[in-house]
Simulated scan of single mutants.
Amino acid sequence: MELRQYVSLLRKWLWLVVICTVVAGGTAYVVSKNSTPIYQASAILMVNQGASTTSADTAYADILTSERLAKTYARLLTSRPVLQETASRLGIDSEPLKEAVTVSSVRDTQLLEVSVEGPNPELLAQIGNVLPAVFIEQNQELLLGRMSESKASLEREIASVEADIARTQEALSAATDENQRIRLETSLAQYRSTYSNIVFSYQQIRLAEAQATDNIVVAEPAEVPLRPIRPRTMTNTLLAAVVGAMIAVGAAFLIEYLDDTIKTPDDVARVSGLSTLGAIARLKETGGTRQLVAWLQTKAPESEAYRTLRTNIQFSSVDKPVRSLMVTSAGPSEGKSTTAANLAVVMAQTGQRVVLVD
């Protein structure tokens, strides 16, 4: 099919393309306008891994650990205890939060984005701010709870060693024998060494607590959204209009592909392999009778078409003049008699003797 045929086909079915485009675009516009607007509020969290106290060379490892923690926290932020506590503080049901809250980690960063979607923008902003706060509190309680037992044990040991040091010092002050004093001084040195080690361990746990409390911070709190994220009325309308136009064009090409009727001289040549001798326009009937336009309207375009047909018939067989012609068609009332009568008239006008049998 040539380009001009495609253009002709589109012009033929332009009305269908326009109708489908308008209907699809209008439907999408109405549906989008009547849909409940959905808003989105987002908060940004930053995950900090506590700096290593051994060497600055571990900074890169700390960053990688923070990224892995971010992925872990992204899952924990939507856990059932966090959602239930958030819903309890806001006085809402926790079930809708499962579908409304999404948490994603920003690639190659230590950031988490907490997004909440729903029809109430004020409530979304509250959820976006309360949810991280609840998670931070629960995460701190979890981390500190694991260290509280160790701290309590070390505190008991410190108190016990302090008591041993105090008793040893009293005994040393009251001792008069030199050997006894040497033994007490040795014990006192051991107690003090043990005390120093225990205090050092205790300070390490306190340092770990301090690092844990600063593990997650809110980098950007959620704000009340001013515009809905969907429905996007103009985008939906344009997309629907484009899809409608594409469907109409596809339907037009399908109809033309399935249509095997002959409409043009090119169709005749393509199907039969024969050339077309002429084309006669459809004649308008007046008063219910057929017109002999070749006799009554000799200057009409239809009369000229019949004369062209006569000439083409004569030149199609120059060596052997045509003596008889049969006019037929695939169905009734397609103009066989009209064509035969007018063709007989134009042939008679050249001086030939013509007999018409209908």
Results as ranks from 00 to 15, higher is better:
residue 206 R to V: 11
residue 198 I to C: 03
residue 183 R to S: 11
residue 155 E to A: 00
residue 212 A to F: 06
residue 177 D to T: 01
residue 158 I to Y: 05
residue 211 Q to G: 00
residue 145 G to H: 07
residue 155 E to G: 00
residue 208 A to I: 02
residue 189 A to S: 15
residue 210 A to D: 15
residue 148 S to P: 02
residue 145 G to P: 02
residue 187 S to H: 05
residue 211 Q to F: 00
residue 204 Q to S: 10
residue 179 N to Q: 10
residue 213 T to S: 08
residue 157 E to S: 04
residue 160 S to N: 07
residue 200 F to G: 12
residue 176 T to M: 04
residue 185 E to W: 09
residue 166 A to Y: 10
residue 212 A to D: 15
residue 176 T to I: 09
residue 160 S to A: 06
residue 201 S to E: 14
residue 163 A to R: 04
residue 203 Q to G: 10
residue 217 V to D: 14
residue 165 I to P: 05
residue 179 N to L: 12
residue 183 R to L: 12
residue 201 S to I: 09
residue 153 S to V: 07
residue 161 V to R: 02
residue 170 E to S: 11
residue 146 R to G: 06
residue 163 A to H: 04
residue 195 Y to S: 08
residue 173 S to G: 08
residue 211 Q to P: 03
residue 184 L to F: 06
residue 179 N to P: 03
residue 191 Y to N: 14
residue 212 A to H: 07
residue 201 S to W: 09
residue 218 V to A: 01
residue 174 A to D: 10
residue 186 T to I: 05
residue 178 E to C: 05
residue 156 R to D: 14
residue 199 V to C: 07
residue 167 R to F: 11
residue 169 Q to H: 08
residue 181 R to E: 14
residue 172 L to R: 03
residue 156 R to W: 08
residue 202 Y to P: 04
residue 145 G to A: 03
residue 151 K to D: 01
residue 153 S to K: 02
